[in-house]
Design a protein around this nucleic acid. Structure first.
Lengths: 342, 342
DNA sequence: ATGAAAGCGCTAACAT
DNA sequence: ATGTTAGCGCTTTCAT
């Protein structure tokens, strides 16, 4: 049978209340006594009973807030599916998980909302967003006040966070290169469509892709097409208007969400089906292209688990799970074709 | 605040004990009263508190037995990783999960061992194994005695099981065909290496593969090579000895675990790297081939989750989770190259 | 600073 | 057939 605080109390010659206070570093306990209690607990390999803890906290559950962008997107709806799964699974387990939507184009509004969440009293935060100083500093200051945070999907660089749940985008680009190499003949022209260069997700993928292609052969002619904001079809059409490009291009890697615009330009130039296309994520335009046979592969990152895992980790952390998670929980690099999309 | 048995008891004008008995269909409660209690519980949308239930069952946890084949294999070591994860996660949650190894080449010994588990008293069973009548009947009789069972990896056909966790092998074969089509020119010879035809896993994959290839084009010449037991390298070498085969073969799909023998024959005939190869699972020989560039893809089924999910579902079932799981929890069809193997 | 005790929701043993 | 009650391990409030 597992060790309980009662047994620790007996061994230490104190009451159960004191053991609880000591193990949770609550104030009002003699430092020497506290140290001794912790030693005894460690020597007995004490592990708290999760069920008992959850039941005891039932009246005032610890509040976990999950921040989502306020924009509608298929990608984030997958994340919400994972969140919902976690909410259902950790119902009445000593925690209360709430979703809050925020507009990340207005960072000062975001930090204000975080402040008001702090004053309402929360136990943990799960967040995504741009890696900008204001947000980073706000999160660091929260962490210093004892509120742990987890980032998901897109990291906010900080060593104060509990962990980051998201894909290794560089590796994703390499996998794309691997596939492109398998699909295209070797001396040939391959285009890589990049997004805004200040959005990390896209540049890392492109770098991985280019590095990967070059590893296969120096003879690939890789041309990077910068995306603009708003990305205009004309940008890509202009590139394909060059007859030389049109003649030699054999593959296109679209690292951004601007799939529809790019595919439209491909269609206009009569290259549909003649050029191999690799995209990212399971968004509707990509699924459409896969079904029509115009897109060959899409590289996914299991967004459902990007919603589920951060909650699971936060719950375990707050409920006294002994081990600290890895700093980076890597989402898988999933290769999908029309036959294994969900 | 959530509804508790206490509130149901008050509303029904009975004691909490009676509510507990009624909701769990225990004997010794007036049928009319029981029905009324259930109605009230449903109308109040009562959901049992998992933490309280777990804590209360702490002294005599429900025993869940996870059956594993007694053979060493990398594939099953992944399944054990998932099992270990679940054991750690559901520690002290009212259940006790134990692994038991059995030798499936001796079915009568297996049924005897199941009988003795029954007499020791278990609450749930998780099992894989050959789909033979003796085993099927034993499981059905256990289910009738109230012991739920879940099958994983390879199904044992029975409508009495709680669910089956495993891959859609036919779909896996189709995905392999999709990839093979992308890798090989169209009129060409493609070999499909099948295992013993009485092992369902292999025949279903082969059928999916052949169907898939035929959908892409009637011009593929697909030749199925039957595996023997023990599979001899000569079997495959003999096929490749035919100069016509050797000249025209462009792709090989290996649905079995006999990768080493097949690859050795490919090497002997000087086709290494000249022929596209697709395999299944992340076993050492396959990883070796991927790294050397002799194997292009391997199609996996997330074995870690095949160990983890059955336990999770069984725990939730025994701990009174209201919803019944889908009859078939499909493992993903994962496409892996050397760049996204773990 | 520490001890004592009540209570979280559920189960099971005991009492009626 | 049904009611009553102790107790699972932990947290927290109230005494001391």
């Amino acid at each position: 049978m597992a060790v309980t605080i009662r047994e620790i109390a007996e061994k230490a010659g104190v009451s159960r209340g004191t053991v609880d206070r000591a193990l949770h570093n609550r104030e009002g306990v003699n430092p020497d006594v506290a140290r001794r209690i912790k030693e005894i607990a460690a020597s007995m390999e004490y592990l708290p009973n999760t069920a008992a803890r959850a039941l005891s906290l039932h009246k005032e559950p610890k509040k976990i807030v999950f921040i989502l962008p306020d924009t509608d997107s298929t990608f984030f709806s997958f994340i919400q599916t994972g969140l919902a799964k976690a909410q259902e699974e950790y119902r009445e387990m000593g925690t209360l998980i709430t979703a809050v939507h925020m507009n990340f184009r207005n960072i000062s509004a975001v930090t204000e909302q975080l402040d008001s969440l702090m004053s309402e009293g929360i136990a943990g935060l799960i967040i995504t967003g741009p890696d900008v100083p204001e947000l980073r500093e706000k999160l660091n200051s929260m962490a210093e006040k004892g509120i742990p945070f987890i980032t998901y999907n897109s990291d906010i660089q900080s060593d104060k966070g509990l962990c980051y749940v998201g894909q290794d985008l560089y590796k994703g680009g390499k996998v794309a290169a691997d596939l492109m190499h398998k699909l295209t003949p070797c001396p040939s022209l391959v285009l890589a469509v990049a997004g805004k260069s200040d959005f990390k997700a896209h540049t890392e993928r492109i770098t991985g892709f280019v590095d990967g292609m070059k590893e296969y052969s120096k003879d690939y002619d890789i041309r990077i097409i910068e995306g603009y904001n708003p990305y205009k079809r004309d940008t890509f059409s202009a590139v394909l208007a060059d007859p030389e490009v049109k003649q030699h291009v054999k593959g296109i890697f679209i690292s951004t969400g601007k799939v529809a615009a790019t595919m439209e330009a491909v269609k206009q130039s009569g290259l549909l089906g003649k050029v191999r296309v690799i995209c990212n994520d399971e968004i509707p335009e990509v699924i459409k292209g896969l079904k029509k046979g115009y897109i060959d592969f899409t590289i996914c990152q299991d967004p459902v688990n990007q919603g589920y895992l951060p909650v699971k980790i936060m719950v375990q952390h707050l409920m006294g799970h002994p081990s600290t998670p890895d700093k980076w929980i890597k989402s898988p690099v999933e290769i999908k074709t029309v036959h294994n999309i969900d």
